[in-house]
């Protein structure tokens, strides 16, 4: 009866009955979810449904109130963000979260350092680290900010800051990447550009994305989970989710 193991790739993220309360309000109400290695998984749902909170729990920003979170099979429940990051998970933020006074190059370079093993070194001259330079320039090229490398991040345009946000997120080479509304506030052209960027950069990686733009979601995702009032309504392939009655009522509305 059981399908052979080969068609069930190993799990990247496993949530088991995860709950989160703020005071008396339970925002995440028992989420169990399995995200497979190498898939592109979108989480959708109405505003206030708990999507960002779920990201904050997985990435270690908030401790969970109940339940367990596993990353690549290891228990990371309530681990600190840097510990989770070192185990191969990286995330972006819905509100641009960069190092405003550092220039673009330094922003990316900082994100490269830990993964290349330089840790807290105060004896290596940054400018002489060939591997850091190479990786930083590669990322700058990928996010299209090579020409803007000397500009302080604070004075970049909004779309450029969003690109930098993506660059910081992927620079460390994490194999599980969480994107929290990467196209929020972008024009149609910018969105298309960002989606292509995400598609390229997340190749051979596990991608979890929170997104409001349904075009983006159905275009990008292998599977979709619908999160409504802190609970997963359903998880499935895009066409299944689109056809799901409960989802249509709860979220997609009449035009679905």
């Amino acid at each position: 009866m059981n399908p052979p193991a080969a068609i069930h790739p190993p799990t990247a993220i496993q949530l088991t009955d995860v709950r989160k309360s703020f005071g008396r309000t339970e925002i995440i109400r028992g989420v169990s979810l399995e995200i497979r290695k190498g898939e592109r998984h979108a989480i959708i749902g109405p505003n206030g449904g708990g999507k960002s909170t779920l990201f904050n729990l997985i990435s270690g920003k908030f401790p969970v109130s109940h339940g367990t979170i596993k990353l690549n099979g290891e228990d990371v429940t309530n681990a600190r963000p840097f510990e989770i990051n070192r185990r191969g998970l990286s995330r972006s933020f819905q509100v641009t979260n960069i190092f405003p006074r550092l220039n673009v190059y330094e922003n990316v370079r900082c994100s490269v350092l830990w993964s290349l093993g330089y840790k807290y070194s105060f004896w290596n001259d940054l400018n002489r680290l060939g591997d850091v330079k190479e990786r930083t320039e590669e990322v700058l090229e990928q996010i299209g900010l090579t020409a803007r490398r000397h500009i302080p991040a604070a004075v970049l345009s909004y779309a450029e800051q969003r690109a930098l946000e993506i660059g910081i997120t992927i620079a460390g080479g994490a194999d599980v990447i969480l994107f929290d509304e990467p196209t929020a506030g972008m024009s149609r052209g910018e969105t298309e550009h960002a989606v292509n960027l995400i598609r390229t950069l997340s190749k051979d990686k596990t991608l979890v994305i929170v997104e409001h733009d349904m075009g983006v979601v159905f275009d990008l995702a292998d599977r979709i989970s619908v999160l409504v009032y802190g609970e997963i309504l359903t998880t499935g392939a895009p066409e299944e989710v689109r056809a799901n009655k409960a989802v249509q009522e709860a979220y997609l509305g009449v035009d679905a």
Binding site: K61, F82, R86, S90, N97, S111, L113, W114, I168, A171
Partner: peptide, 8 residues
């Protein structure tokens, strides 16, 4: 905050 999410 961001520094913690890039491993530090």
């Amino acid at each position: 905050e961001r520094a913690e999410f890039i491993g530090y």
